[in-house]
Nucleic acid binder design. Structure first.
Lengths: 277, 277
DNA sequence: GTCGGGTGCGTACGCCGTACGCATTGACGG
DNA sequence: CCGTCAATGCGTACGGCGTACGCACCCGAC
């Protein structure tokens, strides 16, 4: 009896008719994933081609992608662009990376290693969550494009870097004897807030880039204070609030103040639960 | 002395050499904006072509765009697609809409009218903000793609629908004698949280659509409980929390619980400020 | 030597947004 | 009734995108 050959990466059946080319993988996508898996389990024999040599590797591709995305935004990231940056052909990238989506996922994973996780236990839960928030904030500052992947741990998909981030934040509650469900709810609120402000940060960064590009072309920057947002009229409350709170636009300060509020909310819930028992 | 002719929409100088074609507008983009402006100021003479007739209008284009985006996501929205939906040529759209970006902006503006603003004053600030939060939440449910524009009022750009939303939410604070700067900070925290959860909602909707498409192609849905997120191991705290809080995934409940926490945070700050004076 | 898997990449396809300019229409002054 | 001209529709084309496909080469194993 002949064994039905299966794809070495995804396990799906390989049609005998498919033989001749992939032979082990059912598609280029699986091929790339297979290469990565095999390379990862290789027991660190040769140091992987010193000095960033000519050889194409996932690492070099991901690093090049991060450079482009940091400098010019995720919109400017294209496979052709990354290939040009590396001096290779576009399709060569697909030997190491399954798709553009895969590349971005790998980039996010890699970029999150740029800001280290705290290595000491937090003084208390509030200190722990503040540390975690500022770690994420720093990440968004450095690599705004990571928000293209949702940065709150949900059941949706598994990311080691994101899970490590969450785990570290959850450790803030360690001495508290919290119900796991409560811990989850606190975390959800906390992470949602951080992610929500990050969206503003990202769009600020994007607007900044665009206005810089426009200014280079000789256009004049529009005056903020001219905006109808600052004119009393149809929106008097909004205008007053904007004048008072947004006039020197300081997103870092707003982030800090909102964070304090969110943590106050958690504190209130903690106190209430403690009183109930 | 001959007057330098200027673009009727953006006011920039019109090169005489440019004469012959646009004659009034410096570009097709300005042309589209000009048409819209003129049509808007037309004093409602003829009822604008009853019965959704053959005539192409901004309204019909925007409506078609919303239908496509609702059903298949913003990724599926292309100018060609909208044109096909309307049975016209692709480039015809550009007579009424300056660009795809312009179209999306108009779509967001129009979609936000789908859920009415509250028309009665709120009982108290907490009730007011809850109403505002659920209004936005409903909007994100119906039209997840509106999050492609940042939905927190910042100095970045002016949107009438968004400003009206903010103004209405600010009205929650009306009887409170709040410093405008404090009101702004509360609003910022509140809106950031809502927007942050919306990002999860949106990615859920996207994942849902993709998995439905994959299932139609015969793939099996992956089992949530298999995810490393639920396995104790490298992430014990995360796994416990996920099992307890995310196992029947109920985003609406999580939204409500986090919202309560955020409002508690505002209440704490209000109480503190009141005690200080 | 030769063979076969690992690797790079050129070509091509079908999308996209949109610049450009011609064709048609319809209102209006003569 | 006709000439005119702005408003409008749209066909063609360009440069970009992601990526499927298959050929060419390299290099270690035998």
């Amino acid at each position: 009896m002949s064994v039905q050959p299966t794809c070495a990466s995804c396990g799906s059946a390989l049609e005998p008719a498919e033989r001749g080319r992939p032979r082990v993988y059912c598609s280029r996508a699986c091929q790339a994933k297979g290469y990565r898996a095999r390379r990862a389990e290789a027991p660190a024999g040769v140091p992987e081609d010193e000095g960033g040599g000519r050889h194409l590797t996932v690492e070099r591709i991901v690093r090049a992608g991060i450079v482009v995305a940091d400098a010019e935004g995720l919109d400017a990231l294209s496979m052709r662009r990354v290939a040009t940056e590396l001096g290779t052909g576009t399709m060569s990238l697909y030997r190491h990376v399954a798709s553009k989506d895969d590349l971005v996922t790998l980039m996010v994973e890699a970029a999150m290693a740029d800001v280290p996780l705290p290595d000491s236990p937090a003084r208390d839960w509030r200190h722990g969550l503040e540390r975690a928030a500022y770690r994420d904030w720093e990440l968004y500052h450095r690599h705004p494009w990571i928000l293209s992947r949702v940065m709150v741990t949900t059941r949706a998909y598994f990311s080691p870097a994101l899970a490590a981030d969450s785990e570290s934040a959850f450790a803030s509650f360690d001495g508290l004897d919290l119900e796991p469900a409560d811990a989850f709810r606190y975390m959800f609120m906390f992470a949602s807030y951080v992610q929500g402000v990050a969206l503003i940060l990202v769009s600020d960064a994007e607007a900044e880039r665009q206005s810089r590009a426009a200014t280079r072309q000789g256009a004049k920057a529009p005056d903020d204070a001219q905006s109808p947002l600052y004119e009393p009229g149809a929106y008097p409350r909004l205008a007053r609030a904007m004048r008072a709170g947004a006039d020197p636009w300081d997103l870092d300060a707003l982030f800090a103040s909102g964070l304090a509020g969110v943590l106050d909310g958690i504190a209130a819930d903690l106190a209430r639960r403690r009183a109930d028992t």
